[in-house]
Amino acid sequence: MKPAPFAYVKPASLAEVFRILAAAGDGARLLAGGQSLMPSLNLRLSAPEVLVDINGLPGLRGIVLRGDRLRIGALTRHVEVEHSELVRRHAPLIAAAMPHIAHPAIRNRGTFGGSIALADPAAELPACVLALDGEMEIAGSAGTRRVAAGDFFRGLYETAVGAGEVLTAVEVPTQQPDWRSTFAELARRHGDYAMAGIAAQGWIDGDRARALRLVFFGVGLQPMRAVQTETVLTGQRITRDIVGAAQAALGQDLQPVGDIQAGGATKLHLARVLLARALASLARQDP
């Protein structure tokens, strides 16, 4: 279908964006890469009065290393993240996730910040940023604030970005030498939204798991951290028995509701399969 009519404006500064958002209220939507927004407009699931194209804003694009943090500008295209040497070296979890995000033509236009700000529960990047304990930078007319990933994702397509605000950057801690991370998802077609997926980071102390952050996507209203499962695993050797216990505990963390892709029971089963694969991968990696 074709979208309902809307007005279009392409401001050249954040100050101008704030003015437009304040004037337009609920009728305005920010347009970054548009790779999720345009489908919702074309399907008329959403009919904003004005699209505020933020692609002309300076300074929101690019990847830089700042001490022990990697900063990814909100308007950085997926393809740039996918091919970034900085990301490969300092945030290998994100590098591993990139090829799973839709298809090349969509990664050429879609943005890192757009994916985080939309917070689709089946999307890869929100889960990665939560697993990495990243931080979001949010700008508004009153100034800039920072929100930890654990407080950022608040429900189905709900985030800490308030009315009149713009997500400007995401920062993740660089992966330290003793840390390991792993990413896996199961999708019907390469590039489709996952039926279930996992983004995990942890530290293997000798052969014992420490400080695990296990985040599942496609199995809840938002990226889901599996806290009970992490507790079962902490301080343990990754053996067949402990993997079994962790898989059992995952039922306390996740109660997936079925969607067009798979039923709830199937999703929980797939999440358990992915958990075992992720733990095997973490245990196997060279420290």
């Binding site: 279908m1 345009m38 489908p39 033509a105 969509i106 050429n108 236009r109």
Partner: peptide, 21 residues
């Protein structure tokens, strides 16, 4: 018209993109 099928693929500034998105 929602980015799934790829029939509308064109090049924008040298990279393929979805003409419908």
């Amino acid at each position: 018209e929602h980015g799934v099928c790829g029939a509308c693929t064109v090049r924008v500034d040298g990279t393929t993109q979805r003409g419908c998105l």
